[in-house]
C-alpha cells in the first residue's frame, strides 16, 4: 500500500513541477511581449525586458530535452514496476490453484 502512496506522491510532484514550469514559461513570453511594446517609448528598457524574456525561454528550450529524458525514465520505471507487480500477483494465484 505504501508503494502506491509513493507513486501518488511522485505523480503529484511531477504535475506540480510541470505546472510551475509552464507558468514561468508563460510569464517569460509575457515579459518578452512587454519588452516589444516598450521598444518605441523606451528602447533600452524594451531591450532589457526582451533580453530577460529570451534568456528564460532559451533556458527552457535547453531544459526540455532533459525533462523529457527524466519523464521517460520515470514512466519506464513505473511501467517496469507494474509489470513486476502483475507477474508476482499472477504467479502467486497460479501457485495457489496448483496447491489444490
Amino acid at each position: 500500500m505504501a508503494i502506491f502512496g509513493v507513486i501518488f506522491g511522485m505523480v503529484v510532484a511531477i504535475l506540480g513541477v510541470g505546472l510551475a514550469f509552464t507558468i514561468f514559461g508563460i510569464i517569460a513570453i509575457i515579459i518578452f511581449i512587454i519588452g516589444l511594446t516598450l521598444l518605441a517609448t523606451s528602447f533600452w528598457t524594451g531591450i532589457y525586458y526582451i533580453g530577460f524574456g529570451l534568456l528564460v525561454i532559451g533556458i527552457y528550450l535547453i531544459l526540455i530535452p532533459f525533462i523529457r529524458w527524466i519523464l521517460m525514465l520515470i514512466l519506464h520505471g513505473t511501467s517496469l514496476f507494474f509489470r513486476w507487480l502483475y507477474t508476482k500477483i499472477v504467479t502467486r494465484r497460479t501457485e495457489k490453484r496448483g496447491d489444490r
Binding site: Y48, I50, L54, L61, L63
Partner: peptide, 22 residues
C-alpha cells in the same frame, strides 16, 4: 535554446549597461 539564451543574455546585459533596468 542555446542561441536564445546567449542572445537573451547579450540583450539583457546591453539593457542594464544603458540603464534600461527600470
Amino acid at each position: 535554446g542555446i542561441i536564445l539564451t546567449i542572445l537573451g543574455a547579450v540583450l539583457l546585459g546591453l539593457g542594464i549597461l544603458h540603464h534600461g533596468d527600470h
